[in-house]
Simulated assay, not measured.
Amino acid sequence: MADREHTAALLAGASDGTPGVRVWTPPRQVAFGRRDAREPGFDCAKRIAAERGFEPIERDVGGRAVAYPGDTLAFAHAVPLGDDRNLGSVGERYDRATETVLGALRSLGADVSRGESPDSFCPGDHSVRVAGGGKVAGVAQRVRGDAALVAGCVVVTRADARAVAEVTAAVYDALGVPFDPESVGSVAEAGGPGEPKTVARALEKAFVDGAWGEGDPQVASVDRDS
């Protein structure tokens, strides 16, 4: 099943009142946002990504392009709307999701804080960074009908951080978006584990058992081919 189909299934379940969580490692790709598609350099940026071995795809959630070199995690949490546990406003869901990611990474020993360095990838207010260092994770959101999808990415390994910085610098240059390669961090750099599956399980647990308190959501595989 393709990523879009997995996401659609999560949203359909949430629309019926059943929250769902998925954490996975996407294949090597650059996921462009809707804002990117409106830039004059969009076609050039896609070509640059492909030349570097990253499949260019377009995603429905979020702003600017995000690179997935192979061990960087993506997560998606679909929640029904109208449930007090899931909070009604976009801002409240953003805040809760960011705190959930922070809690998951801190539970693994990573020294992380809220916020990001200037000129980071996919810039936004709801980001997680190495304490005093580069960006590790970002959170995006989409509201559709009677469900919301809170999604994001987490850079796990030092090698992926270097790869993210390299391809993002070239892609953002084509898009005319400011970017500082030194702004990319990783869970490993923050003192946490450099194993994607370990981090994925912690994220799953945090969304299932943590602040959202869903109880028993659908949790999908973290395998690359899921």
Rank of each mutant, 00 (worst) to 15 (best):
A2E: 15
H6Y: 03
A8Y: 00
A8D: 15
A9C: 12
A9K: 09
D16C: 02
P19K: 07
T25Q: 14
P27Q: 10
Q29M: 15
Q29H: 14
A31Q: 13
G33N: 04
D36H: 12
P40R: 00
G41H: 03
D43W: 02
R47G: 12
R47L: 14
I57M: 13
E58N: 12
V61M: 01
G62Q: 07
R64Q: 15
P69I: 09
D71V: 07
A76M: 00
L81A: 04
L81H: 11
G82K: 08
L87Y: 08
G88C: 09
S89C: 13
R93V: 07
T98E: 11
V101F: 05
L105G: 06
S113P: 05
S117E: 14
C122A: 11
P123V: 03
P123R: 01
P123Y: 05
P123L: 10
S127E: 15
Q141F: 02
V143N: 14
G145K: 02
G145N: 11
R162D: 15
A165N: 00
L175N: 06
P178Y: 07
D180I: 03
P181K: 02
G185T: 03
G185W: 07
S186M: 02
S186W: 00
G191F: 09
E195V: 07
K197M: 14
V199D: 11
R201F: 08
A206K: 13
S221N: 05
D223I: 03
D223T: 15
